[in-house]
Amino acid sequence: MEMKYNWDWSVLLCRLPEDDPTGTSETTFGGTTATAGGAAQTFDTGADCAQPYLDWIVSGLGWTVVVACCAWVITISLGSVIGVSRTVNQPMVRAIATTYVEIFRNIPLLVQMFIWFFVVPELLPEDAGRWVKRELPLPEYWTAIVCLGMYHASRTAEQVRAGIESIPLGQTHAGLATGLTRVQVYRYILLPVSYRIIIPPLTSDFMGIFKNSSVALTIGVMELTAQSRQIAEYTFNIFEAFTVATVLYMMVTLIVVTVMRVVEAKVRIPGTIAMGGG
């Protein structure tokens, strides 16, 4: 299919004149070794160069990573607590954990994002609500982190539960039989074994958080996808803008998957294989 489109990577590499008084740019980016040279630093080349687009991308990537990592901390801690709760003997604890999982799993992330951002501050006690709305710096970022973390905790909880349930009952019995308490059995036997088993599904959960952090753009978080759309709208160089974002997402995915493979191999229990990733 023939298409009418003028590729122009230099748009992404331009600098504001104030930022780059020497008039040269040393930047090479993503394999396209383009010197931004004469193409870019002056306003008279048009709107193309009006903004530091490369900085936008870098900042967007930064926020994506920060939001995803902070949310992951919530996800892994809360998800572990809830996953463990679903395997204990007390029916009440199990019921609460199950309710959490069902609610957070069955409402779309975007709806949850809106509820956290627009509805929850209204429902808080007056003082807390005012603080969240008026004084909390960067409220959309905090909201996104909490929302993403709690949403994905429901999924991680299911992985943790599946990991624990995949361990034969005899292991629990063996632990209890030597006098360990239930808590100690979880601490020293069930959790160490199940975390190792569920590394692949936990990795894809993390990738899920990382990709879903893009949903935060709906409440104003300027992460990678938001920045690339903004560049697309400013410059009409949509292919360049979205290609950069896509390549960055793929690179981060590749890095995370590689790192997790190494981790998995390092902690693998001799003579066992891990549960398949989902």
């Binding site: 005899g170 292991q171 019995h173 063996a174 360990l180 020293y188 229990i269």
Partner: peptide, 30 residues
């Protein structure tokens, strides 16, 4: 119960050694 159980040794049909620990760690844990 934990105290009582610690005084009664138990051996299982499927051994139930803890797979993530070495032999010595298995014996030392409790």
């Amino acid at each position: 119960l934990p105290k009582l159980r610690s005084q009664i040794g138990m051996v299982f049909q499927n051994f139930e050694l803890f797979p993530h620990m070495t032999v010595l760690e298995n014996i030392c844990l409790s």
